[in-house]
Write a protein that binds this DNA or RNA. Structure first.
Length: 1172
RNA sequence: GGGCGUAUAGCUCAGCUGGUUAGAGCGCGUCGCUGAUAACGACGAGGUCCCAGAUUCGAAUUCUGGUACGCCCA
């Protein structure tokens, strides 16, 4: 049987119990086992790194990642959820470096690559426990035991396989990458590190003359802010779209090309008089050859030239080229290009290289060594530190008459975050690239088929990013990462890629494996996976197939760890090496659903798409061993039809892109801004009144957020989850607001719990038994199963309100399903909230007296029980994916009476998701009930207006409706309105000119297209006409006629809408569909009845104070001087006794009671109550 | 500097394809209810829908141009 549950519930405590239950009974495994042969719904976990502590943002990601797999599992899909960990990369090296107190590459090498890498491998798991605990506590069901790990040998071998594939197809190549370089430290810095070091500095800005080869009197006026790069000049860039002017400099024969828009500005700035001789478009200047300011390279290469792809021949260097980044915002409109020292400049060189035929392309040159000093090639400047060379170079130009102008220029420039005095420079490094640009169109086509949420990601941020794709710079000159599996012939320089470790060992003349064997022998604890890492793998060499006697040696680099993560769809399976991985891959590719935050656009979203497109795209068939793209026949996707001929989209069909999470905190208006408070209450206590609320980024330093653990302990995981799901669409920036998280408890969790608690209280008292007569088959307490229950009647035989809530339930189930299938958790939650509100504030509220009815077995009472029970059971399943803990608690309680049978599903998460029963949806009933609720609400508003509390009975209300349609139905529900508004009678009228004023408006949506420009005229005529008369005519004829201009319009009741307006001075309120008018007269009889209701209330609260059980009977004594009160007791004795379970009402003090003062009808008295 | 996004009540946000009284929750205020009760309900105040222009019979919604903020990239 049911047992009344306390309303004093601690959700965190209950959640811990639920976790224990899940663990004991292995519910997650069972939920998968149930769907073993079902169609799959594929989910990919984007691997987080356990190298840092999890924070609130991870909770959101993990909550979203949880809700859809849970939902799909209940919907009948098999959804395997494999966890994964990202373990490589610079952050790990930095952590270890901190521990060791070292940071430069040299220091790491001095420390020893071998112990360093070993430490990295151990360090990766530093926060593992916290991550696992968070995952579990949040209720994120994911298979942690079989998690994929990016440093595992099988994972790395998958990555190798893919890289070999790319290498063999000519898609991996060596080139230069311009990096931010710390010359003193001899290392490249990541963009994150560079970002930390920006400072404002003054640098020289110089305008230099480049004389044209054919007409030396004419020159290009070229701008640069880095004079030290001038010796390495290769081109001058113009914007082909801009206008350029040839100007003569007054008092000289010099003629210079500059941007036309800048003539005046430059003249003013340089105090020179400039005369425009001619103008042209930038594109007309392209190809002009000039003499560079220094001869260091010019001496050798002035005549270097090559054949063009498009035919013809062109000089390699020192000519005008096109670059659309050139603007007229500053400088001269012509920009000096030293591709070695600028990423954009380098792109210009790349573009130029592509114009020439293979083997005849211009090549990068420069004269700066990696230590930041100019080389011997720089002649007199050799040996100078680049920044120190600015001045001598400028002076030299000036002496030779090439310097036109110089000034100081303020801008932000990056410095090394470890050595603040050291400016960083852009510098070319050898690097490996993947030829992704060749697949740009395919990637775009692939992207176009992905269901992005929000949609604008596809054409916006992600689409633009793809459209401006550059080749993927894959290699890293670091230590802890997947080694690039390319071996080089030491003699010929020819290379080959290796696809796995075994393949390497099978090479002829293999040597060097003993390095690993020795390490392992010395330390058997070493993870075997390390053998495919640096430095062990570097030691492995073999005989070159390209030259007799030569050896093959691995290149030094490791790869970008984003490649690791992007390879996850196949690498998590060890594809294609592991046994069974091909079959698994075919079943688990592509994913139906993934989700990460917006910052992954250029990260995991891109790495996955790029790798997948290159490896499994249309023209990769041959290279994938004949497997081709393994297209799974379709599970489930939005917008994207599973089209057998179209290989897209992969590797994921739907992606929810989460917004960034913001923190909310309070800081004092005065004093230490670091001394913050996390809640308003704390702030009040700490700072008095003087504080302000702040919203901003989460910050570890400021600690402006509460740790997830604390949230779980204080409010519970469901509160946090519901807050995430139900408060905003997930792609907006989400405020991590402790107050709002806390508020989700009373707003939703507790409200539902209270309904449930109400149910159990009366189910226990009345011994409601849902088991009798029920034959369990599925054990899910489905409507069909419950239909056999004792006293269960078909919905059609139950009362209106029962049918109403069942209709709302099924309507909601349909809506939630529709929303969730569209990956819209927010919309789904709004539906659920509305249902629970209706259940609590209308169904239970309006049904209470049915549960209080004396006859325990009356059909109506049983209907109420069955209806509420069934609704609770279905709601429990409905909310299970969202708030799995509360749902489980409810399920365990709701199934309690059946437990003996052993046939009920042992967890709500082993149930099917509810199916909407269309036959139970009654739209008319919904509309009518809505109207009824409107009337009740208006009635209450009218009472409030007239200051007549609901406890005071009134004679009647009059409800004015514009049409008769629903009146018969409403009349049948008089009792409901009467009790809700505490009135004796309800009248419905449509024609009540004395009470309301009718105003008639056009139905714009209908009439707009029909009458167009005449809409305002129609509106005016309708407004000016007598509303009541129009109504009468409409009701009599079915239409009205209006003359607008030349035309006569016939309008029916669909074309116009009648609005009611309460007349001034009556106790009336108006709503969208009706007006409710209150009869405000309080007769003596009504007054006394009000007194009786007051007395009931006093007695009830006294009962409660005394700790009476619900069924205890009492004796009541009322002492009063008031005749009204005495008379009220006489007249309403039965009602008072019935409501308060009083055996007797005496006009004296009840012996053995504690008398209480009583104030009713403005009279004092005394109330005494005792148990009978 | 470029790209993307956002701007609606005191706060956090809804508002689909244009339809004339712009909504919710919280907060605030007033009142009510009192055997679901440390809950709950009703009502109220509170809006230049960022600004300007355009399209239209009609614009929070579409277009153009600004402004502010956020993110990503340079």
């Amino acid at each position: 049987m049911f047992k009344a549950v306390s309303t004093d519930v601690s959700f965190p405590k209950r959640e811990e119990q639920v976790l224990e239950l899940w663990k004991q009974r292995d519910i997650y495994a069972k939920s998968l086992a149930r769907r073993q042969d079902a169609p799959s719904f594929v989910f990919y976990e984007g691997p987080p790194t356990a190298n840092g502590l999890p924070h609130p943002g991870h909770c959101l990601t993990r909550a979203i990642k949880d809700v859809f797999p849970r939902y799909k599992t209940m919907q009948g899909f098999r959804c395997e959820r494999r966890a994964g960990w990202d373990t490589h990369g610079l952050p790990v090296e930095v952590e270890v470096g901190k521990e060791l107190g070292i940071h430069s590459k040299e220091e790491i090498e001095a420390y020893g690559v071998e112990p360093f890498v070993q430490r990295c491998q151990q360090s990766v798991w530093r926060y593992m426990q916290q991550w696992e605990r968070l995952t579990e506590r949040l209720g994120f069901w994911v298979d942690l035991e079989s998690a994929y790990v990016t440093y595992h040998q099988s994972y790395i071998e998958s990555v190798w396989w893919s890289l070999k594939n790319l290498f063999d197809r000519g898609l991996l190549y060596q080139g230069h990458k311009i990096v931010w370089w710390w010359a003193q430290g001899g290392t490249a810095l990541s963009s994150g590190e560079v970002g930390q070091g920006y400072r404002q500095v003054a640098d020289p800005s110089v305008f230099v003359t480049f004389p044209l080869v054919d007409t030396p009197r004419r020159g290009l006026l070229v701008w640069t802010t880095t004079p030290w790069t001038l010796p390495s000049n290769m081109f001058a860039a113009v914007n082909p779209e801009l206008q350029y002017a040839l100007v003569r400099v007054a008092d000289s024969d010099q003629e210079l090309w500059i941007a036309a828009d800048l003539v005046e500005a430059i003249a003013t700035k340089t105090k020179q008089e400039l005369t425009v001789l001619e103008t042209c478009r930038g594109s007309d200047l392209i190809g002009l050859r000039y003499r560079p300011p220094f001869d260091f390279f010019y001496a050798d290469k002035a005549d270097a030239a090559g054949d063009l792809v498009a035919g013809g021949r062109q000089a390699h260097y020192w000519r005008v080229v096109a670059a659309d980044f050139v603007t007229t915002d500053s400088g001269t409109g012509l920009v000096h290009q030293a591709p070695a020292f600028g990423e954009v400049d380098y792109e210009v060189l790349s573009t130029e290289q592509q114009r020439f035929v293979e083997g005849q392309q211009p090549e990068l040159f420069h004269c700066v060594a990696s230590d930041g000093k100019l080389t011997e090639q720089a002649g007199p400047f050799a040996g100078m530190w680049v920044k120190d060379a600015d001045k001598p170079i400028t002076r030299d130009l000036k002496e030779r008459g090439l310097l036109f102008f110089q000034e100081q220029y303020l801008h932000d420039y990056p410095f090394c975050w470890r050595a603040e005095q050291d400016p960083l420079i852009q510098y070319p490094r050898e690097s490996w690239f993947i030829r992704t640009t060749q697949f740009k169109d395919q990637m775009l086509a692939n992207n176009a088929r992905i269901g992005w949420l929000p949609e604008h990601i596809r054409d916006g941020r992600f689409g633009n990013f793809l459209a401006s794709n550059v080749d993927w710079a894959l290699s890293r000159e670091r230590f802890w990462g997947t080694p690039l599996p390319i071996w080089v012939c030491q003699q010929t320089g020819r290379m080959e890629a290796i696809g796995n470790y075994e393949e390497l060992l099978a090479k002829p003349g293999v040597q060097g494996t003993e390095v690993w064997q020795k390490a392992k022998a010395e330390n058997p604890e070493l993870a075997d996976d390390l053998r495919v890492h640096k430095p062990y793998i570097d030691a492995v060499t073999y005989d070159s197939p390209f030259a007799d006697g030569a050896r093959m040696q691995r290149v030094e680099e490791v790869i970008d760890c984003w490649y690791d993560s992007g390879a996850m769809p196949f690498a998590q399976l060890g594809y294609p090496h592991q046994e069974g991985s091909r079959e698994q891959f075919r079943q688990q590719f592509p994913a139906d659903f993934i989700s990460e935050a917006l910052d992954q656009t250029r990260g995991w979203f891109y790495s996955q798409l790029a790798i997948s497109t290159l490896l499994f795209g249309p023209d990769s068939q041959a290279a994938t061993d004949g497997d081709g793209p393994p297209q799974r026949t379709a599970g489930n996707s939005v917008d994207v039809a599973a089209d057998a001929d179209q290989p897209w989209p992969h590797p994921f069909r739907n992606c929810i892109v989460l917004g960034l999470m913001m923190a909310e905190w309070y800081e004092p208006k005065k004093g230490d801004k670091k001394n913050i408070a996390l809640t308003e209450a704390d702030a009040k206590e700490k700072f008095g009144g003087a504080f302000e609320k702040k919203v901003g980024k989460m910050s570890k330093q400021l600690r402006n957020y509460r740790s997830p653990d604390e949230i779980f302990d204080l409010y519970g995981a469901d509160a946090l989850r519901w807050y995430f799901f139900a408060n905003q669409p997930p792609w907006t920036s989400i405020l991590y607001s402790e107050r709002t998280i806390r508020d989700s408890i009373p707003e939703f969790l507790l409200r539902l719990w209270n309904v449930f608690s109400f149910f159990t209280i009366y189910a226990e008292i009345d011994e409601f038994d849902p088991t009798a007569g029920v034959e369990l088959t599925s054990g899910q307490l489905s409507p069909a199963e419950l239909a056999g229950g004792e006293g269960y009647r078909p919905a059609s035989e139950r009362s209106e309100i029962d049918r109403w809530i069942l209709s709302e339930l099924n309507r909601t189930i349909a809506a939630v399903t529709e929303r969730m299938d569209a990956y819209d958790n927010y919309g789904a939650c709004q539906q659920i909230t509305a249902l629970v509100d209706g259940l609590s504030n209308w169904y239970v509220r309006r049904s209470r007296d049915r549960f209080w009815a004396k006859d325990k077995r009356s059909a109506d009472k049983l209907d109420a029980f069955w209806t509420l029970y069934e609704t609770l059971v279905e709601v429990t399943k409905l909310i299970a994916p969202f708030v799995p803990f509360l749902a489980e608690s409810l399920w365990q309680e709701l199934t309690r009476p059946f437990v003996g049978s052993g046939k009920t599903a042992e967890s709500v998460h082993l149930c099917d998701y509810p199916k909407s029963d269309a036959s139970r949806i009654d739209q008319t009933l919904s509309t009518r009930m809505q109207l009824l609720r409107e009337i009740a609400s208006l009635g209450r508003a009218a009472r409030a207006e007239a200051k007549l509390k609901v406890r005071q009975p009134l004679a009647s209300v009059t409800v004015v409706l514009p049409d008769q349609q629903h009146v018969p139905w409403l009349k049948a529900h008089d009792a409901l309105v009467q009790s809700e508004l505490n009135v004796k009678a309800v009248q419905y009228v449509t024609d009540a000119e004395d009470l309301v004023h009718y105003s008639v408006q056009p139905n714009f949506k209908r009439l707009g297209p029909r009458v167009g420009k005449n809409v305002p005229a129609v509106k005016k005529q309708l407004a000016e006409a007598d509303g009541g008369e129009l109504m009468a005519r409409l009701q009599a004829d079915g239409f009205i006629e209006l003359t607008v201009g030349e035309e006569t319009l016939r309008l029916d009741d669909q074309d116009i809408q009648v609005r009611l307006q309460a007349r001034e001075g009556s106790a009336a309120t108006q709503g969208p569909n009706s007006v409710v008018v209150l009869s405000t007269e309080v007769t003596p009889e009504l007054f006394r009845e009000g007194i009786a209701r007051d007395l009931i209330r006093f007695i009830q609260s006294r009962r409660k104070e005394m700790g009476c059980e619900f069924v205890d009977r009492i004796v009541v004594g009322i002492l009063t001087e008031s005749n009204d009160v005495k008379q009220a007791v006489d007249e309403h004795r039965d009602m008072i006794r019935r409501e308060t379970l009083a055996d007797e009402i005496l006009e004296q003090r009840v012996p053995g009671s504690e008398p209480q003062p009583l104030s009713v009808a403005g009279q004092d008295g005394e109330l005494s109550v005792a148990k009978a």
